[in-house]
Design a binder for these strands. Structure first.
Lengths: 223, 223
DNA sequence: TAGATTGTTAATCGATTAACAATC
DNA sequence: TAGATTGTTAATCGATTAACAATC
């Protein structure tokens, strides 16, 4: 009863890639099976949560023994749609985009950077990892030709919405947005956002709380 | 009754930086007040959630009018601990780390990269944005001297745990981890993880589901 | 069989949301 | 005052967790 159209809780979907990474690591280090406790530790969650998550995929464990690593990798990759290598477009090869274009993790974990775009004509033609940077005006033609459905957006915030609109009308239905702004997109398009400063600000909140604690304050009153 | 030791729901903490970004944008474009509906749109959430979140900070709105942007920015920055510019250490100036070292968003949004480290002696001494790369063996001395409590980890996964241990014993209590691995740290240390391949894999899951839908399948059965 | 471990249940917890009284 | 909008309530929803029966 394992299905692709499977409706999984979003929280589970977000953890499956971490399980997958941990399972690959276990496989690489010579393991064949792993207990929920073992895999949970490797993935940084508790074992009840792990078992609950995996139970949504169907039954890949054996009571008293654990999970068969090989088949479980196959099932998670299948559910995540990683049985094909997905083509990704990257827009914006500035500081961050340039680094993302060279990021080995994309290649090793199911993706292929199929096109690079930038609005700056002086960067067009430049090769990164053997792939030439194209002008953003080529987005419609190239995205269609390469059947690209996923894009990584690494432009300045001021350009992000316009580029997103162009990507979407060319056929992109998933966007990973590194620009610090909110994108407005049709319902059928999925957006995930990574904002590096926001991550640090969340940590800053906890630093602030920790220092209040050290001062023995239960609620350092402002002013 | 605004307090620093304030216990906020984690979900609220994670959204405050987004509100802050939207508020700065509104302030920059000449606005003085904004309604919950207006700010919610700018931040990509619904207005009920926004009002609930802000209610935890105390009362900064006026019924019938909206929120005063200036004071609200001040309050959110205060709660997030951004009234001081926090010193950050960055370890690993490879592909991604080099880009992060030059990321303007860190500087403009409350942080100061105070030290760069790498294990590769051939990179030690190299200057990035005017700051020299130091060897990881300098972590204990420099982290203490500069009172650094936040670190960004952009090393290979194989080195991440060892470097994290060194950072923590030098006094770091918050880590932003870009290495694709789980860190084990004491309870007092906060870790946030950014895994670029995982973000794409989550999008891939939704792509897979969308294509199953197009095929009219309610549950494309496997095999 | 005895020991180990999964898969599932049910209780609990936290987050979201609509609705509206309070109030500017 | 009338209109607008906040702050709060209460219902709902989804996620987490401990515990344990099922079963290898």
């Amino acid at each position: 009863m394992s299905q692709a159209g499977l409706d999984l809780p979003e929280a589970t979907v977000a953890r499956l890639p971490e399980y997958l990474r941990a399972l690959h690591h276990l496989a690489d280090t010579g393991h064949d099976t792993v207990s929920s406790e073992g895999l949970a530790n490797a993935a940084g969650v508790n074992s009840a949560k792990l078992r609950k998550d995996l139970s949504h995929l169907g039954s890949y464990g054996t009571r008293g023994v654990g999970y068969d690593i090989g088949p479980l990798i196959g099932q998670i990759e299948y559910v995540l749609g990683l049985t094909m290598r997905r083509a990704v477009a990257l827009v914006g090869v500035g500081n961050l985009g340039h680094a993302l274009a060279g990021y080995a993790g994309f290649t090793s974990r199911g993706f292929r950077i199929a096109a690079l775009f930038d609005a700056d004509t002086t960067r067009v033609g430049e090769k990164i990892n053997g792939l030439a940077v194209l002008h953003v005006s080529d987005i419609p033609v190239v995205v269609k030709r390469e059947s690209i459905s996923i894009a990584v957006l690494a432009t300045p915030a001021s350009a992000a919405q316009t580029v997103a609109d162009q990507l979407i009308s060319a056929g992109v239905t998933s966007i990973l947005n590194f620009a610090p702004c909110v994108l407005s997109v049709p319902d059928r398009v999925d957006v995930r956002k990574v904002d590096l400063a926001i991550e640090l600000q969340i940590l800053s909140f906890h630093e602030h709380r920790k220092s209040a604690h050290v001062n023995g304050l239960n609620g350092e009153v402002r002013k």
